[in-house]
């Protein structure tokens, strides 16, 4: 697999099945990103290396990175939101009671 080289890119889209992208820069609220034929308005401050939702992710739905399920949303997540421990939980080794 050949990853996209990141020159002049703000976000890294790892796999077509993903509903998140990885930020290659620190993002500010209100920043508008136009890339890969989509436009995303950043809703939270997002640090470099962290994830941003590129699709709506409903509560309980899988969060997909590298084309694989890495956990599920614990609340509804909007496009442009920071996707991290406050709204995602792993499916495994978790004592969560749903």
């Amino acid at each position: 697999m050949r990853y996209l080289v990141a020159a002049m890119r703000t976000l890294l889209f790892l796999d077509p099945k993903d509903n998140i992208a990885v930020s290659l820069a620190d993002l500010e609220v209100g920043q508008i990103i136009e890339q890969e034929e989509i436009t995303i308005t950043v809703l939270n401050p997002i640090s470099r290396g962290h994830k941003i939702a590129t699709q709506e992710i409903n509560k309980g739905a899988g969060v997909i990175k590298y084309g694989e399920r890495m956990g599920h949303a614990t609340v509804d997540i909007k496009i442009g939101e920071h996707v991290h421990t406050h709204n995602v939980l792993g499916d495994r080794l978790s004592s969560e009671q749903l």
Partner: peptide, 20 residues
């Protein structure tokens, strides 16, 4: 394991779950 994996350092680095 959620307290230890991913570790606090991993989480600061942007990793959210053990699967990730």
């Amino acid at each position: 394991l959620r307290g230890a994996q991913p570790s606090r350092g991993n989480i600061e680095g942007g990793l959210s779950t053990l699967e990730e």
